[in-house]
Simulated assay, not measured.
Amino acid sequence: MGLMYTTVIGYAIVLGIAALFTMHFLGKALDSSDAERVDPKPDVK
């Protein structure tokens, strides 16, 4: 029973670290401030 809990908790920790790692690098690569510079917002509708 303890092995099952350890496996599930370990798997959740590994998934969490992978998610944080991915979001950290995607957050750097997909900088939202670049959007205004590349495609400026029009002044009139």
Score class of each variant (00 low, 15 high):
residue 35 A to L: 14
residue 15 L to I: 08
residue 29 A to W: 14
residue 25 F to T: 04
residue 16 G to V: 13
residue 25 F to G: 00
residue 11 Y to Q: 02
residue 42 P to F: 14
residue 38 V to K: 09
residue 27 G to V: 08
residue 41 K to Q: 06
residue 24 H to S: 06
residue 31 D to A: 04
residue 22 T to I: 15
residue 20 L to P: 00
residue 41 K to L: 08
residue 37 R to Q: 06
residue 30 L to P: 01
residue 32 S to E: 08
residue 34 D to R: 10
residue 34 D to T: 05
residue 42 P to C: 09
residue 23 M to E: 12
residue 27 G to Q: 06
residue 21 F to I: 10
residue 23 M to K: 09
residue 41 K to N: 02
residue 31 D to S: 07
residue 19 A to S: 07
residue 28 K to E: 08
residue 34 D to E: 11
residue 15 L to W: 08
residue 22 T to F: 15
residue 24 H to A: 09
residue 25 F to A: 00
residue 37 R to W: 03
residue 40 P to I: 14
residue 36 E to R: 07
residue 32 S to H: 09
residue 17 I to M: 13
residue 23 M to C: 03
residue 20 L to T: 05
residue 31 D to I: 03
residue 27 G to N: 07
residue 28 K to W: 07
residue 27 G to W: 12
residue 19 A to H: 03
residue 22 T to V: 13
residue 37 R to M: 04
residue 38 V to T: 04
residue 31 D to P: 01
residue 22 T to M: 15
residue 37 R to I: 10
residue 26 L to Q: 06
residue 18 A to I: 15
residue 41 K to T: 06
residue 13 I to K: 02
residue 34 D to Q: 05
residue 43 D to Q: 12
residue 11 Y to R: 01
residue 19 A to I: 09
residue 32 S to D: 03
residue 37 R to F: 09
residue 34 D to G: 00
residue 34 D to K: 08
residue 21 F to D: 12
residue 40 P to C: 07
residue 13 I to H: 01
residue 22 T to L: 15
residue 29 A to H: 06
residue 32 S to I: 13
residue 28 K to L: 05
residue 39 D to G: 00
residue 20 L to H: 04
residue 32 S to Y: 11
residue 35 A to G: 00
residue 28 K to R: 14
residue 34 D to H: 04
residue 20 L to I: 13
residue 29 A to C: 01
residue 30 L to A: 04
residue 44 V to L: 04
residue 15 L to R: 04
residue 38 V to Y: 11
residue 25 F to Y: 15
residue 19 A to Y: 12
residue 11 Y to E: 02
residue 39 D to T: 12
residue 33 S to E: 14
residue 27 G to P: 02
residue 14 V to Q: 05
residue 23 M to L: 15
residue 12 A to S: 09
residue 17 I to W: 14
residue 16 G to Q: 13
residue 34 D to C: 02
residue 16 G to W: 15
residue 33 S to D: 13
residue 24 H to M: 10
residue 33 S to M: 11
residue 36 E to A: 13
residue 44 V to R: 11
residue 11 Y to N: 00
residue 32 S to G: 00
residue 15 L to F: 08
residue 12 A to C: 04
residue 43 D to S: 05
residue 14 V to M: 11
residue 28 K to F: 07
residue 31 D to E: 12
residue 34 D to I: 08
residue 39 D to W: 15
residue 28 K to C: 00
residue 11 Y to F: 10
residue 21 F to G: 01
residue 24 H to I: 11
residue 28 K to I: 10
residue 38 V to W: 10
residue 14 V to T: 07
residue 20 L to S: 04
residue 18 A to R: 07
residue 12 A to L: 14
residue 23 M to P: 01
residue 26 L to E: 05
